[in-house]
Amino acid sequence: MNAPDPGEIVIRLRGLRTQFGAQVIHDGLDLDVRRGEILAIVGGSGTGKSVMLRTMLGLKRPEGGRIEVLGVDITAEQDDETLRRLRRRLGVLFQDGALFGELSVAENVAVPLKEHTALSPETIAAIAALKIAMVGLPANAGPKKPSDLSGGMKKRAGLARSLALDPDILFLDEPTAGLDPIGAAAFDDLIRGLQGTMGLTVVMITHDLDTLHAICDRIAVLAEKKVMLIGPMAKMLASDHPWVREYFHGPRGRAALPETALPEPD
């Protein structure tokens, strides 16, 4: 995680094909995720953003193609130990946090530590408290149950759990959905800050144009069963594909643009 080689590819998708029954979701999809970047995946409803995320996490087997995550081909047969090692280098924040309802926030954060390390209970508790503080939750959030937290706090608690093992890659599923604009902006800042300090690679699904502008290095547009366009925001704004134009130049896209980037009205 130190001195990242900027060219290193941490996730490599080649010719990915996924389908449910006769319905093909992805066909011949290629994607590279580079170490240390924040990559956003956008696309209309039903273009398979979540399916792609689940496939990269190994929760769904693709019908064809290759997926390499941190050099491990997860589409090939792998022994359990390899997959276990790989899993502990990935952190995932599910949409509503997916916190275990029976456990307190601190216990939730401690689960990965208990499963994957041989640390003493005191050290685990201390590291869990550290992670809870790192995501900006107050100290008294630790003993609380997830049901006692607001939506924004649940997301932060989920983030703390996903960071418990200092992952190399962090996956975020709509991190700012359901947050008020101020909370969403604060969450963006938090992710950007942690990404820089902890040297994370972040892959996120988002519909939040403000997030795309504020913190994403590259954006991948899913359409027509593949990654139709990938690149920084400037490339998105310059594209003349109708859907991309509509997405980034529509009324909401325009509102999210920083003043200086606002193109001349046409």
């Binding site: 130190n2 001195a3 307190s104 601190a106 508790a125 201390a126 869990a128 408290a129 550290l130 992670k131 503080a133 790192m134 100290a139 008294n140 959030a141 630790g142 003993p143 800050g193 942690l194 820089g196 300090t197 902890m198 040297g199």
Partner: peptide, 22 residues
Amino acid sequence: KPEHETLLHLVADSDRAVEPAV
């Protein structure tokens, strides 16, 4: 190293006593 220093700062800012359960 500089990147280690920022991490250490973040950790130092976040370190606090474990909140005891009830």
